[in-house]
Amino acid sequence: MAAWDELKVVLVRLREEQPGVLLGYPTLELDPGRVPPVPPFGIGLAPWAAAIAGELHRQFADDVELTVGALPYPPGAQPRTRPATTPLPDLLDSREITVELDGPAVVRSGHTLRHSLLVRNLSGRDLQIATNGQVTAAVVDPQTGEVVGGFAGWQTAPLVIFRVAAGATEPIPLLIGTASYTPQLGYVVPAGEWGIQATLTLGPHPRDSRCRRTPILPLTITA
């Protein structure tokens, strides 16, 4: 109980003073009579918040299980869950669909950019793209195509269909995160010239629609 009381004060302060730093944490507003959480307390922090994770680790030690972006803290800790591995979908057929960014994509390391993907329909028939209101990019090594990072955090999951008429070009919201998925890079994808790819679900519903990857598009990450 004492550990939770102390941690709750810290989390409330972080939430008020640094909006966006907390990606996940136990419910702070408990109903009367509800049993408080018990340690270890799972705390998710933004990719840029490794210093804050260090402070929490020093203060609460094993009473907290910390995740910074997509990786566990402290560095070298074993991931608590294994990432799902699925075969990559095929690339878009450029004879039917082409994509480009709606202007240069530039974002600070460890932060998130909301951008737009311009989808051009060359197929001769109307196109439907199933999303949750946006498509989420993966950050890749532009030379090898290896996925090195992307968005970390929760997303809502409504079904939002974007329609692109034959011969038309339409913008689709694009979410670009720069959390590192690779411990060797640290908790953020560092500054430099990188690539992004997004998977498009081509049909009215994710369960029964084919998925295709965009080509690698340019991303500039700044310090």
Rank of each mutant, 00 (worst) to 15 (best):
T136E: 15
T178N: 09
G167L: 08
L174F: 06
P183M: 10
Q155V: 14
Q143K: 14
V164A: 13
G153T: 06
G186K: 02
G186Y: 00
A137W: 00
Q134V: 11
W154Q: 15
I161N: 12
V160E: 12
I129P: 08
P142V: 09
P190A: 06
P190Q: 08
V188M: 15
T182C: 07
G192V: 10
V139K: 01
L175P: 00
P183Y: 13
R125I: 07
T182V: 15
T131I: 04
P173Y: 07
T178Q: 06
F162G: 04
P190W: 08
W194P: 08
W194D: 08
V188L: 05
T156W: 05
Q128G: 10
G167E: 10
I161E: 09
T131R: 00
V147E: 14
F151I: 06
I176K: 01
A166S: 11
P183I: 11
A191T: 11
L159P: 04
R125D: 12
T136P: 03
A168M: 09
T169Q: 15
Q143R: 15
V160N: 13
T136L: 13
Q128R: 13
L174V: 04
V140A: 01
Y187V: 06
L185K: 04
E170F: 09
L127H: 00
F151R: 05
V188S: 02
V148L: 12
G186N: 02
V148N: 00
G133N: 01
I129C: 08
V139S: 03
W154N: 15
T178C: 09
P158L: 11
A138K: 10
Q134S: 15
G192H: 13
A191H: 09
G195Q: 05
L159F: 12
T182M: 11
V160P: 10
A179E: 04
V188Q: 08
P158D: 14
D126K: 10
Q184W: 10
A166M: 03
E193P: 02
A130K: 07
G153R: 01
V148I: 15
I176A: 05
P142C: 05
V147S: 11
V164K: 04
G167N: 10
Q143M: 12
A165P: 01
G177S: 12
E170G: 03
G167D: 13
A165L: 15
V189G: 00
G124F: 13
A165K: 15
A157N: 12
A168S: 14
V164Y: 08
L127G: 00
E146Q: 13
